[in-house]
Write a protein that binds this DNA or RNA. Structure first.
Length: 686
RNA sequence: GCCUGGGUAGCUCAGCUGGUAGAGCAGCGCACUCGUAAUGCGCAGGUCAGGGGUUCGAGUCCCCUCCCAGGCUCCA
């Protein structure tokens, strides 16, 4: 029939439909469930509203709400409703951009008179949004010229700025806000019944009634266009999901992340603190935290020893000259503590990096090619003057210890060396229970780098090819390199799916040149070595934090500050309990006794909350038969009557093998709370 | 550095519109000697982050500083 259109579906089949058929009608023709789940469609790879007619010959796929693309549509549409609610409640408010993001959305506003949002406002906005959703207002798309767009948004300066930018650049395929129609010289807007109109590329759900499983989370300040020289806007963050269940699960994940927060665990488990008297970003490690740190550091030293690294040590401060030569004072001065002036006005700096010192070790005498690759390693404590707003627990501090190595090698050796470094790094991270990795390649930072483009290109190519051989996903971080060279970083996923930057490997042609490094080759001529900068944990502090969160505080037995606690059931069992502790200690284990001054249940609970891997209970039966009751962390029930020798052997083996916990999370009773928490009051979250 | 919100006992928090502080847990003491996630009673503990101001009187109102949280920017 004339005017029919034929479209192809993802399964390869074709469907012929009456001309003007929309994606929604197509979905209905396939099935009511699909029609209900669909929130948008892709037409030849471009996202479309459901009510737009399908062109003939198109490849059409329906986007359902339970896909990532579908959630993005839900979130973006929810952001529109948020903006509508805010403009309802604050007439004259300017709205800027409101994209969907990884697990939610945000919208930026400038309120009249410079007003700002409060938590109470969030509740009001939430209520208004729900009213809009209840009205099931349709989202209607319109397309306008640039000029019409400017008229439409005459009183919305941020929207006008976006439109002007589109007008100035027709080729603009996408803007950060995601608000514009790609490849067009006009703009599209979406309108709903109450007259709210927003600049938007789309697509949107057909009507607000399709939304509703959302939560507004927090308000924050954010610079317009992310530029700290531009006005600061009021941002509202929220999340939205396809179902109440998905929303609830997401909120639970947020609670879980909060429960695992290393700052919280650090205080609860008495590992470290940040006294205000010391200063922001400067941690104090308590005996238990210090012990864990030492275990990690000792093991790191052992592995580096085995891998052919040589150990060096360098001071914490140095004269300015060194950082002038290295270029740090030109390129990194913002990140350094200001100098102290000593002697005759001589400037000394706290070191922000270890590399210049290791370079001087290399340069202390003439080097032969026979010495290369030369791998210098140091647990080097560095200080960086981080802006006050960025310090965060142990993951972003001002004083930190890097497990830092600098490898000097020939150009011929560098590919193999990089490969072996990455292999070494990944192997060690796996031993700590991290096994979900991807790599990130960071390239030359625009405007703040030393060295020629050719050198950067070569270094970047080598890193890319070596990284590509690791069999891991490789992502590009354009412009994210250090000032002296590109880097590959290892991003490790933790137990709840968050990724942390751990190790970085940087290839550097510049510092060897600036410091005039040489080696004498087999040809008896002088050559310039290449340098590789490498951290493995990144910093001991950050790695500690990541491990704590990954294991939810339940560190593997070999890293646990206390590996076993022995509980005599009653005081008459004390002597035997002491003997069990002695047996454990004699085998090199960290064990202690908790005498029967308290109920057994209370003591068990206390040490479980302390995440002690093994709680051993000894009563009359055990005294008689030389056994203990074993309550293993993470296990549901205790095991009775295990021979002392067997327990000692089992623990020794576990520690020697650095065995990982079989079950990291969930070693607390449901609904359980940390010491010091208030009694449950039925409220959700905080 | 910027924005917003905070800072009350070791921890988690309560304290209405100003009338000089309160709970739970932790700590200490006493009693209880108990077989696997909270025994009871008692005691002690706070220059309400620090400084200045308004006031007869400030945890509470105002200003400054410090620190923390969530963001922005930046980054290991």
């Amino acid at each position: 029939m004339a005017g029919d259109v034929t479209v192809r579906l993802p399964d390869g089949s074709s469907k012929t439909l009456a001309g003007g058929t929309t994606a929604h009608q197509l979905a209905q023709s396939i099935g009511p469930r699909l029609a209900k789940a669909a929130v948008a469609a892709t037409v030849d790879g471009v996202e479309f509203d459901l009510d737009r007619p399908l062109p003939d010959g198109a490849e059409v796929a329906l986007v359902t709400a339970d896909s990532e693309a579908g959630r993005a549509v839900l979130r973006h549409s929810t952001a529109h409703v948020l903006a509508q609610a805010v403009t309802d409640l604050w007439p004259g408010a300017h709205y800027a951009i409101g994209p969907s993001i990884a697990e939610g959305f945000y919208y930026d506003f400038a309120l009249p008179g410079g007003a700002h949002f409060s938590d109470a406002d969030l509740a009001r906005i939430d209520a208004r949004m729900r009213a809009i959703i209840a009205q099931d207002q349709p989202f209607t798309r319109e397309e306008h010229s640039i000029e019409e767009g400017l008229t439409l948004f005459a009183d919305q300066p941020y929207k006008a700025e976006i439109i002007e930018r589109v007008g100035a650049d027709h080729e603009l395929s996408e803007v950060a806000s995601g608000d514009l129609a790609p490849g067009t010289s006009g703009v599209s807007v979406y309108r709903n019944t109450e007259g709210f109109v927003d600049l938007c590329r789309g697509p949107h759900v057909p009507s607000t009634g399709r939304l509703g499983h959302f939560a507004l989370l927090r308000v924050a300040g954010a610079y317009w266009r992310g530029d700290e020289h531009r006005p600061q806007l009021q941002r509202i963050y929220g999340t939205a999901w396809e179902s109440a269940k998905a929303l609830t699960e997401h909120l639970h994940r947020l609670e879980e992340a909060e429960r695992r927060d290393h700052r919280r665990l650090g205080a609860e488990l008495d590992l470290f603190s940040f006294p205000a008297e010391v200063g922001p970003g400067l941690a104090l490690f308590h005996p238990k935290g210090g012990l864990v740190r030492r275990l990690m550091e000792d093991y790191s030293r052992q592995r580096h020893d085995e891998a052919g690294y040589q150990f060096v040590t360098s001071p914490h401060i140095t004269k300015a000259d060194l950082f002038e030569t290295s270029g740090h004072l030109d390129w990194f001065a913002d990140g350094m503590y200001p100098p102290m002036e000593l002697d005759d006005g001589q400037k000394y700096y706290l070191k922000p990096m270890n590399c210049p010192f290791h370079i001087l070790v290399y340069r202390s005498r003439q080097r032969s090619y026979r010495e290369l690759p030369m791998r210098l390693f140091e647990l080097g404590t560095v200080y960086r003057y981080e802006k006050s707003g960025v310090v965060h627990g142990l993951t972003r501090v001002r004083g930190m210890t890097q497990d830092d190595a600098h490898i000097f090698c020939t150009r011929e050796q560098m590919a193999a060396e990089l490969q072996s470094i990455l292999g070494f790094v990944l192997a060690l991270l796996r031993e700590y229970g991290l096994d979900d990795f991807y790599l990130e390649l960071s390239t030359k930072p625009p405007g703040k780098a030393i060295g020629s483009d050719e050198d950067w290109a070569e270094a970047t190519d080598v890193l890319r090819s070596v990284a590509g051989d690791m069999g891991l996903r490789l992502e590009l971080d354009e412009g994210g390199g250090a000032f002296y060279g590109p880097k590959v970083s290892v991003q490790a996923g933790d137990a709840i799916g968050r990724y942390w930057q751990m190790s970085t490997v940087q290839l550097d042609f510049q510092l060897p040149q600036r410091f005039g490094l040489e080696y004498v080759g087999a040809d008896n001529a002088r050559h310039r070595p290449v340098m590789v900068h490498r951290v493995l944990f990144g910093t001991v502090e950050r790695f500690f934090a990541v491990l704590l969160e990954h294991f939810a505080g339940a560190l593997p037995t070999w890293l646990s500050p206390v590996q076993a606690v022995v509980l005599p059931v009653r005081s008459e069992n004390q002597l035997y309990a002491d003997q069990v502790v002695e047996a454990l200690r004699g085998a090199g284990l960290r064990a202690q006794c908790d005498p029967a001054d308290d109920k057994l249940g209370a003591r068990v609970r206390r040490h479980k909350l302390d995440k002690v891997p093994y709680v051993l209970v000894v009563g009359d039966d055990d005294v008689a038969s030389g056994t203990v009751g074993v309550n293993r962390r993470g296990a549901g029930r205790a095991e009775r009557g295990v021979a002392v020798g067997a327990v000692v052997d089992m623990l020794v083996r576990q520690v020697a093998e650095h065995r990982l916990p079989e079950q990291a999370p969930g070693d607390r009773a449901p609904g359980d709370r940390a010491p010091g928490d208030r009694a449950p009051d039925g409220g959700v979250g905080r």
